[in-house]
């Protein structure tokens, strides 16, 4: 069976790749596209380590076929910093030690950014529910939640972009 030729946009840039029908978007990001920031924790939609956005919507890249990317716009963790300038969420995660081993971190950052892009005034409960699809075996979550709440507060004050 011939490979599929897919043209899509990743972090604002047009990219092309070849894939098999059953390849997941995560397979192609981490393989041919060399974007290894998205992690595979489970491959079944449970852990959120593979979180990306598709046309602005948060999804698990392990539960999307790469062939489906044709004509859509993909956002990954690699697109979050502007050159050397980290996104406020990335800076706050470092400042508050919201990561330990770091495997879950790209997924948490992509998911948290998707929340703050919609709502800069979430309650703690809203943040916890929004991030319920992201699992972390190290931090115990509190520091992550704190970091997201802090960045939201900074955004409301106009301190963070």
């Amino acid at each position: 069976m011939a490979k599929f030729h897919v043209t899509t946009t990743v972090n604002g840039e047009e990219v092309e790749f070849l894939c098999d029908a059953q390849d997941s978007m995560l397979d192609v990001l981490r393989g041919p596209l060399g974007l290894t920031g998205s992690k595979e924790g489970c491959g079944s939609g449970d852990c959120g380590a593979c979180s990306i956005t598709v046309d602005g919507r948060l999804v698990c890249s392990c539960l999307m076929l790469a062939a489906e990317a044709q004509g859509h716009s993909i956002g990954t963790i690699e697109g979050m910093a502007q050159g050397d300038r980290l996104h406020p969420l990335q800076e706050k995660f470092i400042e508050l030690a919201a990561l330990q081993c770091g495997i879950c971190t790209p997924g948490f950052l992509v998911a948290a950014k998707a929340l703050l892009d919609r709502n800069t005034n979430p309650t703690e409960t809203e943040v916890r529910y929004w991030l319920a699809g992201n699992l972390c075996r190290c931090t115990g979550y509190d520091k992550i939640i704190r970091a997201v709440m802090d960045v939201a507060a900074d955004m409301r004050k106009g301190v963070a972009a």
Binding site: G45, V54, R57, L58, C60, L63, A111, L131
Partner: peptide, 9 residues
Amino acid sequence: IGSKQVQGR
């Protein structure tokens, strides 16, 4: 149904 990520699809 599922998480925010699952809801996206």
